[in-house]
Nucleic acid binder design. Structure first.
Length: 491
RNA sequence: GGGCCCGUAGCUCAGCUGGUAGAGCAGCGGCCUUUUAAGCCGUUGGUCCCAGGUUCGAAUCCUGGCGGGCUCACCA
């Protein structure tokens, strides 16, 4: 850093502004690479960050990295002039420069720009963790890579500069969301925005973050879901609405959980969960096709085929299949015994829904590698879902599961206001017994339902998890630019 | 929250059963006008995460703390 400040000063003494205002570039690195035939011997202007530097007396080679790649620059004192060469000598890896010159190929065959002018665009004062690399059989081999996960997450900007594959993941994330948005818009659904600060949090079972509004002197919660607001919009007469929503849950963090995460929630009037399953498989497979060019993906070494139709298996049937027990209709005492026989530790406070969920999560979910819709959950686990048309102890709900992990949640939405009130009341009783994640009764939401909500199908898709799946990333932190971290130590 | 592992130069790491810190790359100085992990010669660089303890002596052993990773629990 000391050295770089000295160089900065020298440059300024030479009359160079180390932070000028703009640069007219004509091509990106990739455009030069891809149009070499046409551009050979033509003059182009590129800009970017110096990522390697090889000086050889009165000439030099260095690579400049821009948005979509790198290109080599060849600098000769005879071509660029004494002054520019003196400027060059004061540059470092990490500095941002603009170069104009003629396109050619070196003796070793690399497409290169012979610099005619060189302009400093930004002086970098902080050294980058330099990465040395070479191509072996067309493969990039990196020496001493920048791998420290803590530094990579805390200083994502450095990670992005130095590890190009990281950039790819986030570009795909953006494309996944665009493809999803396009898919939904094409069907006429309306993208909307609903409150993040909510006086009553609802729509999911989770603990919230709490904040305070000064002017109103009231408690507000960061939303854990937007479900109840979107359904209000269905009541209001919109017949298809969706939102890409940042949600916040005040819970543990691990490979699959970040305190703030992104969900796409969609509600469509006059449809049920069967219809929604068809839409879900079509949507996910279409996105894969558009973003990856294929519906066959590999996640952590496992081949997964996203092409519809996906298997649809009722929850109890999946448990029968994978755990070898039939617990459909079993009472709580039976469930408790069965779970213990299966080697699952059951806690005293758990109700039957929780026990079933546990058996499923332990013994079934991890085995569902290929896309599967698990359907028809116990009523008590799903206070916002409509009763199953054939079995009043179940609800019409499904979760799409891929690679052993749920990537969403959906149901035929409960629109009977009296039933909804009873379900809320049951939740409030759980809450009174100390279940902090039980849902809160929302009187205004009930009022909306009392005006009448048409039959509606709802879906939530975890964007972070979907991105993990489609980019083959093992941790949610690898698909979130700035994952939550403890504050940096300052000692 | 529990368990295991990690924290040494800008980066990647070595440093044994305690003897006062090293390599490669980067940086700096020099040579080099088609190199590419460029090369060659020379060279700077460290609160060894923090605080205590044991010891004549601690990067090393012990305790506590901080930060991170993995994992289990929790959690949709």
């Amino acid at each position: 850093m000391q050295q770089r400040r000295k160089k900065l000063k020298k440059l300024q003494e030479m009359g160079i502004n180390p932070y000028p205002y703009k640069f007219e570039r004509t091509h990106t690195s990739r455009q030069v690479q891809e149009n070499f035939e046409a551009l050979q011997n033509q003059t182009v202007a590129v800009a970017g960050r110096i990522m390697s530097n090889r000086r050889m007396g009165k000439a030099a080679f260095f690579h400049v990295q821009d948005m979509d790649g790198r290109i080599q620059i060849y600098l000769k004192r005879d071509t660029v002039g004494d002054f520019a060469f003196e400027v060059y000598k004061l540059l470092d890896i990490g500095d941002i420069v603009g170069v104009a010159g003629r396109v050619f190929k070196t003796r070793t065959g690399e497409i290169t720009i012979l610099a005619e002018t060189l302009e400093l665009l930004t002086k970098s004062l902080r050294p980058l963790p330099i990465v040395k690399e070479k191509l072996v059989n067309g493969r990039r081999v990196v020496y001493d890579p920048f791998t420290d996960k803590e530094l990579r997450y805390r200083q994502r900007y450095v990670d992005l500069i130095v590890n190009p594959e990281v950039k790819e993941v986030f570009i795909k994330r953006s494309r996944i969301m665009s493809a999803m948005r396009e898919f939904l818009n094409k069907r006429g659904y309306l993208e909307v925005e609903t409150p993040i600060l909510q006086p009553i949090y609802g729509g999911a079972s989770a603990r919230p973050f709490i904040t305070h509004h000064n002017a109103l002197d009231m408690k507000l919660y960061l939303r854990i879901a937007n479900e109840l607001y979107l359904k209000r919009l269905i009541v209001g007469g919109f017949e298809g609405v969706y939102e890409f929503a940042k949600d916040f849950r005040n819970e543990g963090m691990d490979r699959f959980h970040n305190p703030e995460f992104t969900q796409m929630e969609l509600y469509v009037a006059y449809q049920d969960y069967h219809w929604m399953m068809a839409l879900t498989e079509e949507m996910i497979s279409t996105i894969a096709q558009e973003v990856l060019g294929t519906m066959k993906i590999t996640y952590q070494g496992r081949e997964i085929d996203l092409a519809p139709p996906w298997r649809r298996v009722p929850l109890f049937e999946s448990i029968r299949e994978h755990a070898g027990v039939d617990i459909a209709g079993a009472d709580e005492a039976t469930l408790r015994r069965v779970a213990e026989d299966l080697g699952i530790a059951v806690e005293d406070g758990w109700g039957s829904g929780k026990i079933i969920d546990e058996i499923f999560g332990e013994l079934v979910e991890p085995k569902l590698i290929q896309p599967t819709f698990i359907t028809d959950y116990p009523l008590e686990m799903s206070p916002l879902a409509k009763k199953h048309r054939e079995n009043p102890r179940l609800v019409e709900r499904f979760e799409p599961i891929i690679a052993g992990k749920e990537i969403g949640n959906a149901f035929s939405e409960l629109n009977d206001p009296l039933d909804q009130r009873r379900r809320f009341e049951a939740q409030m009783q759980l809450r009174a017994r100390g279940d902090e994640e039980a849902q809160v009764l929302d009187e205004d939401f009930l009022r909306a339902l009392e005006y009448g909500m048409p039959p509606t199908a709802g879906l939530g898709i975890g964007i972070d998890r979907l991105t993990m799946l489609l980019t083959d990333q093992p941790s949610i932190r690898d698909v979130i630019f700035f994952p939550h971290m403890r504050p940096e130590k300052t000692h």
